[in-house]
């Protein structure tokens, strides 16, 4: 028999696990459905059966997914928009807050990485601000900005700035002195040195920070949108929960996972492009 490659075997295992998982889920739900038939009148009156019966089997989620994904961009009023529109809003907020953070974090990180005075001066602020949960900023943001959309973007901004800032500073500070000396012996200007030597040398570390940031931003946007409401995947999840439509809740949980994975994969690709072997 031909030996299968490691990747092939892993893929077979993944698919098998998926089917086992779905199967266990499906039969455990239908077992419960049978149970509900044997409920006493008292149990039915107290509603013991209904909540459990509300958890849908995967087949129902799959049908829901098919419906939603076959028409993702419909817009039938504030409480009924396609999943594509909701995810679009979330991605727009994440990317806006994220790029605003990058525009500030990367140059500032460069400065901190290059100058130990700047590092020492800014470090206390960073150390205090960084551990603050981004959602803790929300009330203050809502009060000052007076706009829920902008507040959500601000929360994304504040949560994605730290990993980028620290990784840029760390990457820049760690650039081998020999490489900087190569730039110096070639009489490169400070700007030229920054772009042709320091940036490519620190790029892998910087992109790692960017990748961590986008992951955190995607985690935070769901919670932020649950708070500010209106649109977005976080709002969608909360809205469907209020409608007790657990099928939609489970479907949107999957979508959150998949979008997060794609965002991460995009940065993984970028990471591979800037990587180098010493």
């Amino acid at each position: 028999m031909e030996r299968l490659s490691e990747n092939r075997r892993a893929a077979i295992w993944s698919i098998a696990l998926l089917f086992v998982g779905l199967f266990v889920w499906e039969i455990s739900i239908s077992a419960q459905a049978v149970n509900t038939g044997e409920l006493t009148e008292y149990e039915i009156l107290t509603g013991a059966g209904t909540a459990k019966a509300g958890v849908p089997p995967p087949s129902e989620v799959a049908v829901k997914a098919w419906q939603e994904l076959s028409n993702p961009f419909y817009d039938a009023g504030p409480n009924d928009k396609g999943i594509g529109i909701q995810i679009g809003y979330s991605i727009y907020r994440v990317l806006t807050g994220y790029f605003l953070a990058a525009i500030i974090a990367i140059p500032l990180g460069f400065l901190i990485g290059m100058s130990s005075v700047a590092y020492k001066a800014l470090n206390p602020f960073i150390q205090v601000l960084r551990p603050i949960s981004p959602l803790a900023w929300m009330p203050l943001a809502l009060f000052i900005i007076q706009d829920s959309e902008a507040s959500a973007i601000f929360v994304i901004f504040i949560c994605s700035i730290w990993p980028m800032l620290l990784n840029t500073a760390f990457g820049v500070a760690g650039v081998r002195e020999d490489w900087v000396n190569v730039a110096r012996t070639h009489e490169l200007s400070a700007i030229k040195t920054a772009f042709t030597v320091v940036l490519p040398a620190a790029a892998p570390t910087i992109v790692t920070g960017m990748r961590i940031s986008i992951g955190i931003a995607w985690l935070v946007i769901v919670a932020a949108e649950m708070l500010v409401g209106g649109t977005g995947i976080g709002y969608y999840v909360w809205n469907e929960w209020n409608n007790l439509d657990l099928t939609s809740v489970i479907f949107s949980i999957f979508m959150i996972g998949i979008v997060g994975m794609l965002l991460d994969a995009a940065f993984g690709l970028l990471q591979r492009r800037v990587a180098y072997v010493e």
Binding site: D178, W179, N181, V182, R184, T185, H186, E187, V197, P200, A201, A203, V274, Y276, V277, E278
Partner: peptide
């Protein structure tokens, strides 16, 4: 300060790996 009139070959080559 350094100058292009003085070229340097470092012990560890110091090539830019990227």
């Amino acid at each position: 300060g350094p100058s292009l009139d003085r070229g340097v070959v470092f012990q560890n080559y110091s090539l830019l790996p990227w």
